[in-house]
Design a protein around this nucleic acid. Structure first.
Lengths: 231, 231
DNA sequence: ACGCCCCAAGTGGTCAAGCCAATTTTTCCA
DNA sequence: TGGAAAAATTGGCTTGACCACTTGGGGCGT
């Protein structure tokens, strides 16, 4: 049907999205049973193992429930999940503003506690981030490590957990899935430059400047994220 | 290896958990490449298609990154997620210090946005809190309402959620169980007086003073909590 | 006529084997 | 010694087969 074999996305992702689209359009109704695997695979023009991979993705995100011997049942619709998100009223804007507020306060608390050794650790994290970018890898892990290392300087594991959770909400694979081209080497390079500016302020022991720069970094990250939202 | 073929869980879920366990135990290191699909399938005693289904689950939850022709790379560890869930590793001290940090930042953001009407609403909340105390009721709900009303002035529902979650952790039934006599009318009256001081600063439109007083309030609340800890 | 049991068909679960495409490594030649 | 090409290794996807569970229909007994 509509599988783009030249796409960089994995086939299971395309097939899963296609099924979500069929559910959203009403072709597959909430609570109803989908066509059997063999038939659905044929309809979508893929093999049964590939369809099964797509169904796993749909099972994980709660769209379908799979019952051996019985069938595949629609348990959630894209609209319902969108509604659920709308009900909490949380958006990317609010998440990033919350992060900016929290992490600016955190770096304010942590800023005076950095030593030469811990600053050096931050430096190494940024160098690892740079190496990731240059070698074509997503520097997500080292990005996260940078934010958590700053939070860790507070010596407060609740703060570390909060910063980690907020970071993960920003980067959850499920939320990122809807933004095909968001994180590019160019955007990662911007993020790295902003991290460098934060580190420079910490190295200068200028905590207020570090706060301003952390806040600016997260505002910029918000802007990059929002600009990539499909409209 | 350790696949339970009588288990009701799907094979891919068991295999995915097994791989998470290997990552957590250090057999597979963050950033490193896993054994190739064919080898890993053999090691775990499952077929390659079954392993691939497990890898999809791990890709979706961010544990691994899969690169065609290159390999499967560990991008997240279970330890970090375990750390994220650690309630036992966190103390009352850390929770209250985290609250102080976050809520001082929040009132800094919210402070300039109060109007006469919203300040009046805060006043009514404090009067309800006083009535609770005088009538022998725990003013917990109005205490919470006071903190959330301030957070609500930011217009950011993520911030409201964070403040609410941190408040609830402070007052969760499980954590409160260990402190049979912590909250007394005397301690509540102290808390109320501190809330009054915060409100006075907001009424004077003195946001920095409101921040200092919110911070002091939560430090005092920490002290009251810790003094009641059984030793 | 209704209820129960058994069997067959239809369903998902897992596997083996093969081939294609991308990446990495090794080898060969200039 | 370095670069290019070939080979090996990697993941991606397919075909086909068999196993296990569920459901529905038919037949038999009360």
């Amino acid at each position: 049907m509509n599988i783009n074999r030249t796409s960089e996305r994995r086939l299971y992702q395309q097939v899963a999205d296609q099924i979500r689209g069929l559910i959203q359009s009403g072709d597959f109704v909430l609570g109803s049973r989908l066509p059997a695997e063999r038939e659905l695979a044929q309809q979508l023009g893929v093999s049964r193992p590939s369809l099964r991979e797509a169904l796993i993705a749909l099972e994980i995100d709660g769209t379908v429930e799979i019952r051996m011997g019985s069938g595949i049942y629609v348990t959630a619709t894209v609209e319902r999940r969108a509604l659920s998100q709308a009900a909490t009223g949380e958006s990317a804007v609010e998440l990033m503003e919350a992060r900016a507020t929290v992490e600016a306060a955190v770096i304010g608390l942590a800023g005076a506690r950095f030593t030469t050794a811990t600053l050096r650790g931050l430096r190494l994290t940024l160098e690892a981030m740079r190496a990731d970018i240059e070698e074509g890898r997503k520097p997500l892990e080292h990005d996260r490590q940078f934010h958590l290392a700053i939070a860790a300087q507070t010596g407060n594991s609740v703060i570390v957990r909060l910063v980690g959770e907020l970071f993960d909400e920003r980067h959850s694979p499920i939320s990122s899935k809807f933004r095909a081209h968001f994180d590019t080497p160019a955007t990662w390079r911007h993020a790295l430059a902003e991290h460098e500016a934060i580190l420079a302020a910490l190295e200068a022991h200028d905590v207020p400047l570090a706060q301003v720069r952390m806040h600016a970094h997260l505002e910029e990250s918000k802007r990059r994220w929002i600009e990539s939202e499909p409209r």
